[in-house]
Amino acid sequence: MSSTTTITKAPKTRPPAAPINILDNDTAKLYTHIHPILVLSLYAFQFKSIVADPVPALLRTLIPLSVLQIAYVAICLPPTGSNATPVAPPKPGQKKKPVPGKLESGIQGKIIPAFLSLLLSTLAATPVLTITLILFGAPIATHHAHTLLCAAHISLLATLPLIYVHGVEGEKWREIVALLLPIDEVYGAMIGAVLGAWLGAVPIPLDWDREWQKWPVTIVTGAYTGFAVGKLVGGTLLKGKKISFE
């Protein structure tokens, strides 16, 4: 992950990270609150079929979820490298573009980064999360499709917006994983989704004999709930706060 060179470099760069603000327009301000409602409604609407037969239902739900998440990041969030995030582009010489106007920022500025984020969260984050789920006790020999789809849902919820706003820079992602960034609604949503999935394991062993206790329904439910709660709390109550381990 790191080497001594990182350390020697550290002092001269990197201004303190600031929380992500949503774009300063009315649509963004409105949609950021509608989005979690839509996501939860989608999940609630699909819940019965997910319980009945998780694999096809989870697979089906991925498409509307991607659409919603892409819409969310495109409407509400500043893409990586834009002015709203203080992350310096990799090449120091390159000049920052001025804030793009509303019209300019259309397809090129937003939809393409959003689709790249979708691609990355599916291809990079999903396998990592699948392995994590298995390490946490997901069945190792069976239910592979279940686990993979569960991971895909969590990564769409948690990592797609993060990739969109923070890009793929190594040091940035070290800070993300190290929980060093200040909390904002994107970061909060990620932490919320992961914590929700973690807590989602609690009801599995109970002897209630409910259909919905089957793998991975509770985990996905926890992730969706955690996403909404984390996004709300991260965007309001805890905004700008930093996580301390000490």
């Binding site: 992950m1 790191s2 080497s3 001594t4 990182t6 350390i7 994590t132 390490l135 946490f136 006790g137 070290r174 994983v177 190290a178 929980l179 060093l180 973690w198 381990f245």
Partner: peptide, 17 residues
């Protein structure tokens, strides 16, 4: 596993490489 994930996060926070 949760404990080790937390120490993994904490390790990422360490300044010394």
């Amino acid at each position: 596993s949760s404990f080790a994930v937390l120490t993994l996060i904490s390790s990422f926070r360490q300044k010394d490489a």
